[in-house]
Design a protein around this nucleic acid. Structure first.
Length: 556
RNA sequence: UGACCUAUGGUGUAAUGGUAACACACCAGUUUUUGGUUCUGGUUUUCUAGGUUCGAAUCCUGGUAGGUCAACCA
């Protein structure tokens, strides 16, 4: 009969589908991801990447990676490299690696062509004069005194600009459109400026550089981009985008705009991210608290979880503020399926199994992942002296506390049921050690004791445990929406966003952990080995906690 | 005192003139050798005023609210 109902399309997919149905692009559609190489990619870029590549994948097209490198003042090869590795890590393959700077000669010729048609002119006005004559959104602008230069003079001047005859700022090339246009971008926009600055790819070959508006659409057109997708703030540029393409009579790429991603409890603007790096509020662009792709990767986020997140947030044209809990959900969902379970104690307190023989060690077999029995089991050593989590013992446990306390029973995960017999305190009143007895017939997997306990806690064997550093990360900001915050947003950084624990103990199997590989510390969260780790000093990053309904219960 | 964009539960996104749905979050229960997971159920929605229509979240008009635009940035 009918094929199963497909998921509804977002507005961009609908546009593409309609274009294809209309037979507009028999060669297939083409999209592009066009970052300026002046910073690191963040989760907002991931949305754009997933969109551009996803659209092409879905409709049998291709996607270019194009660096929008028209401003040599801010761009560096370092950023080019990080951007390429981030896009590749996210799992996308670009059809071509391209640079707007590849097209400088062609774009120059486009400019010459517009001058020849009387549609562009060289203006000697200063930046201030141009701004003053531009008017405001509510008052029309005024024509520049240089607006009516002859084609010949403009051609000669523009050529001289290219030759380096003029100083920076002495002249610009402008499109001749309409200084009274209600859209500010149509009031004789700048096409070229003089910049005696070496470019990271073209070196000193050029001293004039095209502006965004005279490079982006032209690059799209030259590449045969059918759907040029950008964020909402470029909406007002679209008439200009179309005007240039139309006057140049080149391939008609079309621009479409979507609302960029805003995430709660973090900042996304390049300026603010850079500020945090410069002020050393964070350790760098890949500090695991940052929303950059490289930071998320280091923190333990998987590419699949980020792709899934981008899929779930949807695409539309209204401003949004996505709750970061959705991102957290996506990484938990993924890691729950693939992360092996291991045991680690963050805040150790000693537990002595008084009826377990001194010096005896037992190799227990514990499942790696109950979600995936295929992952098998591993050996976990058990002995008389263990560490358990300090918070898993209470001298005076309240009702519904399914853990350890005087006289209470719990199961040690993968081992035995124990009964707490007594405990000793330090002089400061804190618990020094806990004494318990184990029930030999209750061994995990072959339990004949008939005892049923409500709680299971994790543990590590003291003689076998490895001491480790654990970095607990939490949300960057204590406020949901950072959009209203100014430069003082650093005052709202969550003091708990980084909490370093240097006295954690992990089970010995973790000696084999590899950097970035995800594990679940049972009952605690998902973690991965940080690149700062050394064989004699393991460092783990907390990617995300497990959901903790007990913590919620306690807050009541 | 301009042009343009947008308006659906707490947060996002669907519904393409015909029963307002899905996910996250939240709440309750289920399952569980992780207070994790699973499964089930629940709370909460069309900015406003008119109009067109048998019928409007959807189309039209006005209003209101939010956003974008006045870099030799992208």
């Amino acid at each position: 009969m009918e094929e199963s109902k497909s998921k509804s399309l977002n507005f961009l997919e609908e546009i593409v589908q309609a274009d294809i149905a209309a037979g507009k692009y028999p060669q297939g559609i083409f999209t592009r991801f066009p970052p300026e190489p002046n910073g690191y990619l963040h989760i907002g870029h991931a949305k754009s990447i997933c969109l551009n590549f996803g659209l092409a994948q879905k409709f049998g097209g291709k996607t270019n990676l194009r660096f929008d490198d028209t401003n040599p003042m801010t761009e560096e090869t370092e950023y080019v490299d990080s951007i390429k590795s981030d896009v590749a890590w996210l799992g996308f393959e670009w059809a071509n690696e391209l640079y707007a700077s590849n097209y400088f000669e062609q774009i120059y010729q486009f400019a010459v062509s517009l001058i020849s048609k009387g549609l562009a002119y060289v203006d000697d006005s200063s930046a201030e004069e141009i701004a003053a004559l531009k008017g405001t959104p509510t008052t029309p602008g005024t024509n520049s005194p240089f607006r009516n230069r002859s084609v010949e003079e403009n051609l000669a001047l523009f050529s001289a600009m290219r030759n380096g005859d003029f100083a920076d700022g002495a002249k610009v090339l402008r499109a001749k459109i309409d200084m009274a246009h209600p859209n500010m971008h149509m009031r004789d926009p700048l096409m070229y400026r003089i910049r005696h600055v070496p470019h990271h790819r073209t070196g000193n070959q050029w001293c004039i550089y095209p502006m965004y508006d005279f490079a982006h659409g032209q690059s799209d057109s030259m590449e045969g981009i059918t759907h040029s997708i950008c964020t909402l703030e470029f909406d007002v540029h679209r008439p200009l985008y179309d005007w240039f393409i139309n006057k140049l009579e080149i391939f008609p790429s079309h621009q479409y705009e979507f609302a960029r991603l805003n995430l709660s409890h973090t900042v996304m603007s390049k300026r603010k991210l850079l500020q945090m790096v410069n002020e050393k509020v964070v350790s760098g662009w890949d500090d695991p608290r940052m929303p950059t792709i490289s930071a998320l990767r280091r923190r333990g986020y998987t590419a699949a979880s980020i792709r899934n997140f981008c899929e779930r947030i949807g695409v539309a044209k209204r401003d949004n503020l996505i709750d970061i809990s959705l991102l957290e959900f996506c990484i938990r969902e993924d890691l729950n399926k693939i992360a092996d379970r291991v045991m680690a104690v963050m805040d150790p307190v000693k537990l002595i199994i008084t009826n377990y023989p001194e010096g005896q060690t037992e190799d227990l077999l514990v499942e790696n992942n109950p979600e995936d029995p295929e992952t098998g089991k591993r050996v976990v050593p058990f002995s008389r002296e263990l560490y358990i989590e300090r918070e898993d013992f209470m001298v005076e446990p309240p009702k519904k506390f399914f853990r350890l306390g005087p006289g209470l029973q719990v199961r040690l995960k993968g081992a035995y049921i124990i009964t707490c017999d007594h405990f000793e305190l330090n002089t400061d009143g804190s618990v020094k050690e806990i004494h318990a007895s184990y029930i030999p017939e209750s061994k995990s997997g072959q339990d004949t004791s008939g005892i049923h306990v409500k709680g299971t806690i994790h543990w590590v064997s003291i003689p076998h445990a490895i001491q480790a550093e654990v970095r607990l990360f939490d949300r960057l900001l204590i406020v949901e929406d950072a959009s209203e915050l100014g430069d003082d947003f650093v005052k709202f950084i969550n003091p708990e966003s980084l909490n370093i624990i240097d006295n954690a103990f992990v089970e010995p199997s973790l000696a084999q952990a590899t950097i970035g590989e995800a594990v679940q510390f049972i009952r605690k969260g998902y973690y991965c080995l940080d690149r700062d780790s050394k064989p004699d000093h393991l460092v783990f990053n907390r990617t995300v906690t497990l959901k903790d309904t007990w913590a919620k219960e306690q807050k009541k």
